[in-house]
Design a protein around this nucleic acid. Sequence first.
DNA 1: TTTAGGG
DNA 2: CCCTAAA
Length: 693
Amino acid sequence: MVFQKRSSSEMEVCGGSHVAEMPRVPKSARGKRSVRKKESQTQMMCAFDLLATVAGKLLDEGEGSLGNMSAVSPVPAASTKDVHVKQEQFGEEVKHFRNDVMDQDSCNESALISHIASQQLVDHQSRKGEDLNEVPKAKSEAMDKEPSMISCTKADLGCNFGAIADRWSPESVESGAFTADAAANVMAMTAAGFNKNVADMYNLLDPMDVDVKPPPLVSSDSTGEMPLYGDKIRRSISFPRGPKGGAEYAVDREQHDDDDDDKSSGCTHSSTATNRGFRPNCTADHSRVKKLLACKYRKVAPARMHKGDLSYSDADRKPSFRNKKMYYTRQRTQRSSFKRRKLLDRRSTLVSEEFAKSNAKRTNKVAARESHIASLEANKGINSMPFHKSCESNDCHVKLKIKSFKVPELLIEIPETASVGSLKKTVLEAVNAMLGGGLRVGLLHHGKKIRDDNKTLMQAGIAHDDVLDNLDFSLEPNCAQHPPQLSAAEDIEFLETIETTEPLARVTPADSSSKHGEVDASQELALTPVTANYQGNDRDSVHSPGGISSPEKASANSRAIVVVTPVDCNAGAIVPANKAKRSSEQGQRRIRRPFSVAEVEALVLAVEKLGTGRWRDVKLRAFDNAKHRTYVDLKDKWKTLVHTASISPQQRRGEPVPQDLLDRVLAAQSYWSQQQAKLQPKTPPLAEARLLT
DNA sequence: TTTAGGG
DNA sequence: CCCTAAA
């Protein structure tokens, strides 16, 4: 379905390449891929990490608390396969998790989680160097041996989040739009992999042909390989089902911000393709999210546009992007036409409601074991209370093992056409935002919320065996502000106005988020045809542009995502947000989305082949799926690339573009300029030849 | 709608 | 990225 007519035709024209080239790709692409994958995971990790961190703090800085986390899936570089295996080893809970999450196609999730876990391990680990491979054992040991530990396993957290994602009906995510993305992305990278000497490539060209249909600069035309790539990709991507492609597929998104200001996506990925290596800068991302949110907040978005239909065209999306940014003082003319996404909104609403419901009852189970209670309990004055239970000598501690935290409700609005990856990303952002707003832990005992922090555990009756089953912890947003009542949304269709203060806010990704085909789309990809484009980044990862319309009302926490705290802030407020806030000014400037290295590669590749003056073709060829990249964008990017390539590395900013790519840019630019020059005089090559002669 | 350039 | 004149 994704096949582009255009692409195919071009394929034929350029035709050329063959399997032979494929092998080459891996080289450059491979490495990057893996790195990127890691990066993406890292990104995800950030959110969870934060969560975990928070949990950790709450629970006590004890090493034990984190111990389990790491135990869940400690292997940093674990392949998906490994992850699966490990998870399975964790029994019910994990299984559950898998069912909820994995089945939804997120093999990614597991990977992410594992990654996160591993990250945690790295971060907090400093303590013991338990063999990562012995997760299960470690875990069990931790449970049994570590007397004092409240552990919040990542897996558990993941479950919760996964559950959230799960809430969304499969249709929530439009698979079609992205199906090929990841594959294409992979392909693009693969294609990009071949670095032929520019001269060589050009030699293959016949100048004369240029004006007609510029021949591929490279003998091996990537287009011709598409089928093959597709196949490969398919296999690679299918790893969720099996171990097979797990390691292979890794889409990356590496978006690096050139500037420090405005970043649109909450957690941007830093590019790893380069030498820098990824740097999981959670804080940075985190703050970034806040920033982003803040920005959104500031903006008063009148109305966000909705799409009438599920499919968004590039143009359609633009408005969305525009909403996001308003830093620009420049006034933009308003665009008159906007479409509304009634369906989407409706669906969002429904989902939200359901979500809320489920959320209401969701609680985390605390597997109480023994262990002293962490800081949380400190407030309760547990420490000194002698319990009947495991009270040996002085430390009569209640030992708890928190398997999971219930997370605050998050409402997310995302177009159906968004990819799973974008959904995940959106959730991540939401989580980040939530975390950014501050979290606190809620405690429920026997289903009752214990609010008195001064009460001792004993007084609270939390000192016994019952702890095991009756104690629940939840992560709650700091309710600085009270979530206003949600009025039931009658008008599901136009949820345009969302009170900022609404308890439930939604995160509205303008479009898909995963910049590069992320692992998420993998399954989908397997089923759909692969296109030739570099679709890696197609999905925009702009999130919640629309976010909040009324800044005034919104409070820090509510930003893009309003976290509803059922328990605390306003118990009853868990009303689903019916209305979406939509902001959106049509005239808003689009969000800045730096080109990732992968995109640059794709661009360079396309230009090498097509030349500079055929931006539309370049777009179709390499960015057909990148809805947010217009041919004008590509042209501009090329312009900047040429400029970048001509300045010293020190003067370059943003995500560094590999020198080899820049070299190719210059070479291609030079080559095509010449071609153009030749063509200028009525008699291009011949004339020149004669003259020269 | 695309190109091509300036802003 | 945006905006536009030209094509």
